[in-house]
Design a protein around this nucleic acid. Sequence first.
DNA 1: CACCGTGCTGAACGCGTGGTTAGCATGTTG
DNA 2: CAACATGCTAACCACGCGTTCAGCACGGTG
Lengths: 228, 228
Amino acid sequence: MRSAKAEEAGSGEASPSDLTARARIRDAAINRFAVEGFGASVRAIAADAGVSAGLVMHHFGSKDKLRAECDAHLLATIGRLKRENVAEAAAGHSFFHKFAAVEENAPIVGYVLRSMQDGSALAQDFIGHMVDDAVGYTKDGVAAGVIVPSRDETARARYLTLSSLGALLLEVTLDPPSDPSDLVSIVRGYFTNSYLPMMELFTEGFLTSRRMLDEYLMYVPDPPSGEE
Amino acid sequence: MRSAKAEEAGSGEASPSDLTARARIRDAAINRFAVEGFGASVRAIAADAGVSAGLVMHHFGSKDKLRAECDAHLLATIGRLKRENVAEAAAGHSFFHKFAAVEENAPIVGYVLRSMQDGSALAQDFIGHMVDDAVGYTKDGVAAGVIVPSRDETARARYLTLSSLGALLLEVTLDPPSDPSDLVSIVRGYFTNSYLPMMELFTEGFLTSRRMLDEYLMYVPDPPSGEE
DNA sequence: CACCGTGCTGAACGCGTGGTTAGCATGTTG
DNA sequence: CAACATGCTAACCACGCGTTCAGCACGGTG
């Protein structure tokens, strides 16, 4: 294996031109998948990476394995990003504010959105973590007195997370970006358009009367804490 | 054209077996597309309809035209369903409650969700109408005093609609149904899981302090009424 | 009866796909 | 130098796709 192993093991990032072909292929795949979905052909990815299609197979064995490696790589990256920003991700902010704001990570956002679009394991994992995080943040927020308590914190965290991510997904799907930089502007647009109604809803609510909620609470014996 | 024209023009629905082959193909396509997305092969649709793949082309010319006809058919059906239920769709209910509740229309729901998943014109049209409806409903609700007014009703309607539809889309995507009846149970599950947190959020809000909203309002000159 | 239109089929075509493989270029090693 | 390992390519294969087309069955019409 010549010196590839050494290079690869040596560092996480380097200037694009002196990356291992393997890493270059992986990054090209992430970008392609992010931009045009997982229907992207191996040949297109290979072309982006400046190599032949055969080499992709040589390194990864199959398209699925390539994707799996992209998934794993992104999952690790996302975990790192989250850990770096965990302190700043205050409960009051939208849950993935910090995550989505980093512009240099546009391909990651795009890739994750594409994963959601096709419901892959990565998406499930990602959303699962997202919900778990949201549960933690809201719990902290409730304890700190800045967030109103819920009768079912997990259900609320899940509801809010799915709503936010789903709305973003929908927005991006309806108006698909042609390249990653386009994506960040869409994400930004989503936030700027949603921020006011979200804040209004979060602080002023939507209904003037408690009737509908109370009727529901009357009807249902007690809030489930975890089902299914 | 033998008697097909007469049959076809005569009625909208009939018992499945004596439908025109053309209508049978259309319905089969709607079902297939709803269940497995628009990647479904013409051959599979033809098989479902009990005809050959060639006949599909004979009647519709191309897969795209077949899909266009499905779109048109569903758009018309949805319009009719909406008109039928317009009186009952009170503002307080989730906006597409009535629509999603009808079980016999599961294929329609599935088809629309698939459309959202791939961002087709039907989805844009559908969501556009959905937002327009929501604007109307909320306006009525505000006038009636049951909904709190917003600084930007359109933005709120759009936000709420995209959130609801997006969350449902996400839920269905993450846990894809294998047949239409499976779909209705997922939709039901989504509602039952979301209803409490949604009602809580709508009546009790999420944040205990107005600070974040007020800071935003301070920062932004005044609410835009329509941009982009 | 022959003729023909028409709903319809089954085999085929062209193409793009993921995947395979023979072999080239290069550099290390005996 | 010869032998070999290895990153890499070009040509190829099998397959599934949308689509085409020659022709069959059948019913109305002269």
